Computed example of a mutant assay.
Amino acid sequence: MPRFSFRLDVRDPPDQVIGAMVDFSERRPEIWPNLTPRLFRVHSLGDGHADVTEGTALPGVDIWERVSYEWTDAVVRGVLTDGRIFAPGGTFEMHVAPHGTGSRITETYDRRSRTLLGRCLGAVFQVSGGAPIKRSLRQVYGVPG
C-alpha cells in the first residue's frame, strides 16, 4: 500500500511534461514546489537515467526518498532505492501522450510503507486516488484544480 493510478490532462505538450519531470538541475525544487531544496541531491545523471535523493520537510520530520529514474520521450519511471517512510522497491511510472493541444498523463504508483507515518500517508494517497500527487502535477503544469 498505496497502489493507485490516475489520468490527468494538462496544457503542456509531452516534451515539456517529460522535461519538467527529468529536470535534475538546481532548479528542480523551483519547478516542483513540494520539494525541499536542502533535501535535493543528484548522485548521478546521464542520458535517460538519474539517481536522486529528494523530499519534503514537514513540521518535525523530513520525508525523503532516493529514486533511480529512467526515461524516454514518453515514459518516466522511478524505483525507490531508499527512503524514510516507504520501503525500497516501490515504483511510479508516468506515461505521457499527446492529447489535443496538450498532454494526457497516466500515472501508476506503488509503494510499500516502512513506518507508521508511511502507512498514514499511504492511506491518504490510496483513499484519495493520489490527490496530493495530482495537486502537485496541476500546480507544475498550470492546470486548475
Rank of each mutant, 00 (worst) to 15 (best):
T115A: 10
D15S: 14
G142K: 14
D51A: 10
L137E: 01
D82R: 12
L117W: 08
F125L: 15
S44R: 14
F40S: 07
G83D: 10
W71R: 05
R138D: 01
E65H: 11
D23L: 07
L39Y: 00
P59S: 14
F24A: 08
D62W: 03
E65N: 13
Q139D: 14
V76I: 13
V17R: 07
T72M: 09
D62A: 11
H95G: 00
K134G: 01
V17C: 03
M21H: 15
F40T: 04
A57T: 10
G145Y: 03
R84H: 06
L45A: 09
D12I: 01
R28W: 07
M21E: 06
L116F: 13
S25Q: 08
T36S: 15
R84E: 10
W64R: 13
P33E: 05
T115P: 03
E107Y: 02
G145F: 06
R28I: 01
G102T: 05
I85K: 08
F92Q: 03
G129L: 04
R66N: 12
F6Q: 02
Y141C: 05
T108S: 15
S136A: 13
Y141P: 02
K134S: 02
G46K: 12
R3V: 11
G19E: 09
V143D: 06
V42Y: 06
R66K: 13
P13H: 04
V10G: 05
H49I: 00
S136P: 00
L35S: 06
A87I: 04
V96I: 08
T115M: 08
I18R: 09
P13L: 05
G48K: 04
T115R: 14
V42H: 05
R77N: 05
P13W: 01
S136E: 08
T115C: 08
T108P: 07
P88N: 10
S5A: 15
W64T: 15
F86S: 10
R7Y: 02
R41I: 00
H95V: 11
D62F: 07
Y109V: 09
G48S: 05
A131Q: 12
G130W: 09
P88A: 11
R77F: 09
L58D: 00
D110V: 03
L117C: 06
V75S: 01
G118S: 01
E65L: 12
A97E: 15
F92H: 13
